[in-house]
Design a protein around this nucleic acid. Structure first.
Lengths: 206, 206
DNA sequence: ACCGCTTGTATCAGGACGTTACAAACTAGC
DNA sequence: GCTAGTTTGTAACGTCCTGATACAAGCGGT
């Protein structure tokens, strides 16, 4: 295995990836460490230091080619391939996620969508058909699901988390405000936009 | 002005706040630094050190009273009051945000909701009525809007950002994948769940 | 009264990060 | 072809953050 990145480096590389993807969307093909710095609030020297530890990706006097850099960072993070996601809940949030390119841009494919409501099972959303929740274990196995995304009410979240764990899924992205208990080898990431706002607000008020 | 918190402290306090709010939802009334640590991956000693810098909030042998600690952290972050948000876009994502308690739990109130589609203007969503986008400047002034939340297509995002800036809003929460250009005194926070997933995935694959 | 748990606090060492500096390489304009 | 301007890659240095360890004081339950 390659050496382990520190938490800080991995976090920053992820943020660079975000900006690079956005910049690519905007039609840019090249970007300087200075420009990345403006969008990430990371020191330009730090950015170059982070990147130069893995190779010489830039051109002096020009900057970094965006496509190349995206590919290199994904390689460093060892997340280059395609990863399959299962989405739980076909309400407004579930549909918003399924319909956005937010995941597809980074190599994630929403491979399945579940609901418990019989009225919703069978609905087509984008190019997916909503399946009944009871199919979870089979789908995880057949589709090679690596990540479960919970767009469901808090009351149902722990049960789904338990079932995902039973099926071998190790990464859960939680959009509910439930506090999930999982084994220590499972990673739960809870989305909390309000907390991120508080953080931003603090620095604005200062 | 009280002394400025470092980026690290403010970020950690925000995360504690997230866990505390979730724990409160789950009916807990008290929590130990050890328990917070398990949900945040922050060292328990670090947590106690962060908190003890501002006062003695805990009870030895017991832990921290959740309500008290939430109030204290919000006081430290100087974000105790009520803050008004304007939401742009009444599609699936906009409706999901308006309908969730995610913001309300942290003192944010969605005070207005905008759309440009004449078919959507006038619709009632929760206890809000969708207003036409042209009312932005008036509403920002009358309602004391501090934050703009963009749940709209990338193509429209820069225009809305510009208009928010013109109206004096300094904090923008961007759910689109546009790369926004704003003056340096305006904070843009772009939601990027896929990037957060990549980060989680990296550590799982290690 | 005793025991276990948890906070509050001190100390120490390692390392990450900001800062500054500069040579090398590339582009553009003349 | 030459020069000016830009940007990367890299080094050196000092500061401050963080993890680790340790322990007394305080609280609750038995």
């Amino acid at each position: 295995m390659a050496e382990q990145l520190t938490l800080g480096v991995a976090a920053r590389l992820s943020r660079y990836l975000q900006v690079l993807t956005q910049a690519k969307r905007m039609g840019k093909t090249s970007i300087s460490s200075q420009a990345i710095s403006e969008y990430t609030n990371v020191n330009p020297t730090q950015i170059r230091r982070d990147l130069s530890g893995f190779g010489k990706f830039g051109k002096r006097g020009v900057g970094y080619d965006i496509d190349t850099l995206i590919a290199q960072i994904r390689k460093i993070l060892r997340t280059s391939g395609q990863h399959n996601i299962a989405l739980f809940g076909s309400g407004n949030l579930g549909q918003a996620i399924a319909g956005s390119g937010a995941f597809a841009d980074h190599g994630f494919r929403v491979s399945a969508m579940f609901d418990v409501d019989p009225d919703k099972v069978g609905l087509r959303i984008g190019d997916l058909t909503v399946r009944h929740y009871s199919e979870l274990p089979i789908v995880v196995e057949n589709e090679g699901i690596e990540v479960g995304v919970l767009a469901i009410p808090a009351a149902a979240a722990q049960q789904v988390a338990d079932d995902l764990v039973s099926s071998g899924v190790k990464i859960i992205f939680n959009y509910s405000d439930a506090l999930l208990s999982v084994p220590s080898d499972v990673t739960v990431h809870t989305s909390s936009p309000a907390v991120e706002l508080l953080y931003a607000l603090y620095f604005y008020l200062s």
